[in-house]
């Protein structure tokens, strides 16, 4: 069975309108994208949608009470809230370096959570 899906690419701010054609749940064509990122996004979005999660984590003894963090790679879209729960349960100690791994494998995704800013000690 052939099926068409219309997507808006989130790969960059251009927001290309992409049409993905699937046959028996297999992608047969991608059109409307202007670059490779759009092709990759579209194929992933219809089979295994993923998102990068950005949030904050509580900090002890830092210049700020929280440190901004992100998942180092994208994680399955359906696990966003599981990832948030785990990030919310952890408290880390200052100092923190930008890029420092704060959770090795978040919510069983195999993806690390890293700091996106430096936090100096208070």
């Amino acid at each position: 069975m052939e099926e068409k899906k219309e997507l808006t690419c989130i790969g960059c701010p251009m927001g290309c309108q992409i049409t993905v054609t699937l046959k028996d749940n297999m992608v047969t064509s991608v059109s409307g994208n202007t670059c490779k990122i759009g092709d990759t996004y579209a194929r992933e979005e219809v089979t295994d949608p993923r998102r990068t999660v950005t949030s904050i984590m509580k900090v002890d003894g830092g210049e700020l009470p929280v440190v901004s963090v992100k998942t180092k790679e994208s994680i399955p879209k359906g696990l966003m809230f599981g990832v948030m729960e785990e990030i919310g349960a952890v408290k880390v100690n200052a100092p923190i370096a930008i890029g420092q791994i704060l959770i090795e494998n978040v919510a069983g995704t195999g993806v690390a959570v890293v700091a996106t800013r430096e936090i100096k000690e208070k």
Binding site: P13, T52, T54, S55, S68, K70, I98
Partner: peptide, 17 residues
């Protein structure tokens, strides 16, 4: 703190900080 910054300048997706 969200991502989406730097695609033009650094050719990679960064967060604001």
């Amino acid at each position: 703190i969200h991502n989406g910054f730097g695609l033009h300048t650094f050719k990679e997706e960064l967060t604001g900080p």
